[in-house]
């Protein structure tokens, strides 16, 4: 999950990044200093949290926004009054003299809303379909035969195989057979 810092001043950007990394050194932090490229960067990086000055977070930005405001939380970096911002759109704000604790508090408040890491996701477990495919590979069927048996296209089987290899770290058919037997997916005959 990306945090974006949109700010013209090098010193402020670097400072915020430093504090964010103090909280979590693995946090991915992107920076942008040119307001003209702001919209494109948002679309590309899809941050969940944006720290930005009024050069970026102004009415003209928010009013032309396509991505729903709920998905991204905007935190204003204030030099003076909050009113320079598209203020209604901000979720929170920090001042130029805010303390580390203020920033930590903001992180805490918004990161619980959305998990910061994908660690929790069981991205490496096989889906039911993939398990079916593993079993057929283990029985020695070719991609074409598996496709016919499961009423899928050969192309889909190839995609499943790629995902299986990525998840398990096993490339060869005989390797997958060993995997299937160890995990009791098929019986030895």
């Amino acid at each position: 999950m990306v945090i974006l810092i949109a700010e013209k001043s090098d010193i402020i950007r670097t400072g915020i990044r430093y504090i964010l990394h103090e909280q979590d050194k693995n946090q991915i932090v992107k920076e942008i200093e040119n307001p003209d490229k702001f919209k494109r960067t948002i679309e590309k990086e899809k941050p969940f949290l944006v720290f930005g000055s009024s050069d970026f977070l102004n009415d003209s930005y928010f009013l032309g926004l396509k991505i729903s405001k709920d998905k991204i939380k905007y935190i204003g970096i204030c030099m003076g009054a909050v009113s320079q911002f598209g203020a209604n759109f901000l979720s929170d704000s920090i001042q130029i003299h805010s303390t580390k604790a203020d920033i930590f508090r903001i992180l805490q408040k918004f990161s619980t809303a959305q998990p910061r890491h994908d660690f929790g996701k069981k991205d490496h477990e096989l889906t039911t379909r993939e398990i079916e495919v593993v079993c057929e590979i283990a029985k020695g069927l070719t991609n074409k035969e598996i496709a016919d048996k499961l009423f899928l296209s050969t192309h889909t089987i190839v995609t499943h195989r790629k995902n299986i290899t990525r998840k398990l770290g096993i490339k060869t058919a005989s390797g997958l057979t060993v995997y299937a037997i160890i995990n009791n997916l098929i019986e030895i005959n």
Partner: peptide, 16 residues
């Protein structure tokens, strides 16, 4: 080398 690679992963990840 693919088989060697697989064997390593089976040992690391899947041997009971």
């Amino acid at each position: 080398e693919e088989k060697l690679f697989d064997l390593k992963n089976i040992l690391i990840k899947y041997v009971p």
